[in-house]
């Protein structure tokens, strides 16, 4: 166990209407076993004790599954480690003297609410437009009446693992939500349950995605590189296919 000294430059913005700026803080004696959010907790305790406003940031599960946390650290969404969320990033990956610039996830579709806390409800609206199988509760057939090959289930699970953190949007140079949208569309397109609404789903979700003001994908692959759950852009390819097929027959 060792400790390090850091300089933090954190985006501070009191609310959506005000202008923000980077504020510099020094934080010494950061235990390297801490998670990134615990490091921010320590900073916030210090700020509180000085009578200053602590940094607002979203978080909940702190084990990399709820998708609530996230910030851009030195230009990389969820920080420099591969396939981890901010809450699972540990301070042992930094060293004394490092300057960390911490900014909120940004996109036209993500209004900043305060400091690092942004509004990602646009992602919810994409799901609302069709990211589900329309079955009511009750009266469903026996679970085993629909055999699904293990490989197919695993492939669907690969896509279903998306935690909706929105880092893909934040890191995409165009602010595209393709990886997020494609993950849900892929999951359901790969499973027999998703077939009935397959085309409608692709049309509706892409229309909603465009309406929310997300950018266009130019296959920059940044999303895949920062995605904490390793969602592959293969899903984006699948979405393109799904969408074209849907447009040509039902659009």
């Amino acid at each position: 166990m060792s400790s390090i000294d850091l300089t933090l430059k954190i985006w501070r913005q009191p609310n959506s209407d005000s202008l923000g700026s980077l504020e510099t803080y020094t934080l010494n004696g950061v235990n390297t076993d801490m998670s990134f959010l615990e490091m921010l907790d320590v900073l916030n305790e210090n700020l509180t004790k000085e009578g200053k406003d602590p940094v607002a940031f979203d978080h909940d599960c702190r084990e990399g599954i709820c998708g609530m946390c996230g910030a851009v650290v030195n230009g990389v969404a969820h920080g420099p480690e591969k396939e981890v969320t901010l809450c699972q990033l540990h301070m042992r990956h930094f060293s004394t003297g490092d300057v960390l610039v911490i900014e909120p996830f940004r996109s036209r579709a993500y209004p900043i609410k305060k400091d690092l806390l942004v509004d990602r409800s646009a992602l919810d609206r994409i799901i609302q437009s069709g990211g589900y199988v329309s079955v009511n509760t009750g009266g469903t057939p026996d679970g085993n009446s629909l055999p699904i090959s293990s490989q197919q289930a695993e492939l669907a699970m690969d896509a279903a693992a998306c935690i909706g953190c929105g880092a893909c949007v934040a890191s995409c140079p165009n602010g595209a939500a393709m990886l997020f949208t494609s993950a849900k569309i892929s999951q359901l397109a790969l499973l027999p349950q998703g077939q009935v609404e397959r085309k409608q789903r692709a049309l509706a979700m892409v229309a909603q995605m465009d309406k929310e003001g997300f950018g266009n994908c130019t296959n920059a692959k940044e999303c895949e590189a920062v995605c904490p759950k390793g969602i592959s852009i293969r899903n984006i390819a699948r979405l393109n296919r799904e969408y074209v097929k849907a447009v040509l027959s039902e659009g």
Binding site: V72, V76, V101, E103, R106, S171, N174, G215, E222, V226
Partner: peptide, 15 residues
Amino acid sequence: NREESKSRYVVTTRV
């Protein structure tokens, strides 16, 4: 797309 990427982050790193 340029509208999106214009002055988005103070530090931008491509992974």
